[in-house]
C-alpha cells in the first residue's frame, strides 16, 4: 500500500489563461524551474472561458487535480473575466463539496506572465498536496 502511494504520480489538468498563467508557465520552463510532469496544460483565452462543466469533465474522467489559473484581479486582458471566473469557480467548488466529493482537488490561482517562479511554486505545492490525497477515487468507478 505505502509502496503504491509512493509510486503514485498524479495527473493534473491545468486550465491556463493564455495572457498570463500560460506565459508564466512558459517562463518557469525557460527559466529551468522544476515543473512536475504530472501537469497537462490546456491553454484558454481567459479564465472566464472555463465553464465549470469542463472542469467537471476532467474531474469525472479521473484527473487527480484540476488547476485553474488566470491573471491577477484587475489585470485580466478582457478587463473583468477573472472576477467572473472566480464566481464560477466558487459555484463549482460548492457543488462538488455539497455532494460530499473532494473539492480540494480543485484549485484556483492567479499567476501573471512574469511570475515564472510563482507558477512553479503553485504547481509544485498543488502536486504535493494531490500526492498526499492519493489517486482520485472516481477513476475506478464504472457507474458514472
Amino acid at each position: 500500500m505505502t509502496k503504491e502511494t509512493e509510486k503514485f504520480e498524479p495527473r493534473i489538468v491545468g486550465f491556463l489563461c493564455n495572457w498570463c498563467s500560460y506565459a508564466g508557465a512558459d517562463l518557469a520552463g525557460t527559466s529551468k524551474l522544476k515543473i512536475p510532469s504530472s501537469l497537462t496544460p490546456i491553454r484558454v483565452m481567459c479564465s472566464s472561458r472555463i465553464d465549470p462543466v469542463l472542469v467537471t469533465t476532467a474531474f469525472l474522467h479521473g484527473a487527480d487535480g484540476v488547476l485553474i489559473a488566470g491573471c491577477h484581479p484587475g489585470d485580466c486582458h478582457y478587463d473583468k473575466g477573472n472576477y467572473y471566473a472566480r464566481r464560477r469557480f466558487a459555484v463549482l467548488k460548492k457543488v462538488i463539496e455539497g455532494l460530499g466529493l473532494e473539492s480540494d482537488r480543485l484549485r484556483l490561482s492567479w499567476v501573471s506572465a512574469s511570475e515564472g517562479q510563482r507558477f512553479a511554486e503553485v504547481i509544485n505545492e498543488f502536486n504535493e498536496k494531490i500526492k498526499k490525497m492519493g489517486p482520485n477515487p472516481i477513476k475506478v468507478k464504472t457507474s458514472l
Binding site: 462543466v53 469533465t57 464504472t142
Partner: peptide, 21 residues
C-alpha cells in the same frame, strides 16, 4: 482504464452539470 464503463454514460456528469449551470 476503468475496467468497464456504464451505459448510458454521463448520468452523474449531467446532474452535476445541471447543478453548476
Amino acid at each position: 482504464s476503468k475496467g468497464s464503463i456504464r451505459f448510458l454514460p454521463d448520468t452523474i456528469f449531467f446532474q452535476m452539470g445541471r447543478m453548476m449551470h
